[in-house]
Amino acid sequence: MGIRSGMMYTAGIISVGASFASWLLSKEVEQDIARADRWGLFVGEWAPTFFAMGVALRIEETRQEIISGRPEEERREEERMGRRLSGRMTAGV
């Protein structure tokens, strides 16, 4: 699907910041401090999910590297070059 482990790690880090920001903003807007706390905790629960998905994707990426016998980055670069070359060939026809 094109989703990489690094993307999930980034989403986890962003969700930690979003949790703090939502708690801070809710604390200012809401009259009830408990509701602001719950809102911050709700958003904060996303971070472990994103990190777990990142770990699972990294395991899958490593497995693909082992199966193919070459690093994932090298394989991706080769695929990109193949697409560029095939695009040039069809454009020239």
Rank of each mutant, 00 (worst) to 15 (best):
Trp23Thr: 07
Arg4Asp: 13
Arg76Pro: 01
Lys27Arg: 12
Met53Phe: 10
Gly54Pro: 01
Gly12Leu: 02
Ala18Val: 08
Val55Cys: 13
Arg88Met: 07
Glu45Trp: 09
Val55Trp: 08
Gln31Asn: 12
Arg88Asp: 11
Glu60Trp: 09
Leu85Ser: 03
Ala11Tyr: 00
Arg35Trp: 09
Ser15Asp: 06
Ala91Asp: 11
Gly87Glu: 14
Ser5His: 04
Gly82Met: 03
Arg84Met: 14
Trp39Phe: 15
Gly92Ser: 13
Gly2Gln: 00
Pro48Lys: 01
Gly54Lys: 01
Ile3Thr: 09
Thr10Glu: 05
Met8Phe: 09
Ile66His: 08
Glu28Ser: 14
Glu30Gln: 09
Val93Trp: 11
Met7Cys: 04
Trp46Thr: 13
Trp39Val: 15
Glu78Gln: 04
Thr49Gln: 08
Asp37Pro: 06
Glu65Tyr: 05
Leu24Phe: 14
Ile59Pro: 06
Glu74Met: 02
Leu24Asn: 08
Arg76Val: 11
Gly44Pro: 00
Gly69Glu: 02
Ala47Pro: 06
Leu57Arg: 00
Glu61Asp: 04
Val93Arg: 15
Thr90Val: 15
Glu77Pro: 06
Ala52Arg: 02
Leu85Gln: 10
Ile14Glu: 02
Met53Lys: 04
Met89Lys: 11
Glu28Leu: 14
Met81Phe: 09
Val93Tyr: 08
Gly44Cys: 07
Gly54Met: 01
Ile3Glu: 10
Thr49Leu: 08
Gly12Asp: 00
Glu60Ala: 14
Met89Val: 14
Glu60Asp: 12
Ile66Asn: 04
Tyr9Glu: 02
Ser68Gln: 14
Tyr9Val: 05
Met1Val: 05
Arg88Asn: 08
Trp39Lys: 15
Gly87Asn: 15
Gly40Thr: 02
Ser86Glu: 13
Ala11Arg: 01
Phe42Glu: 07
Glu79Gly: 07
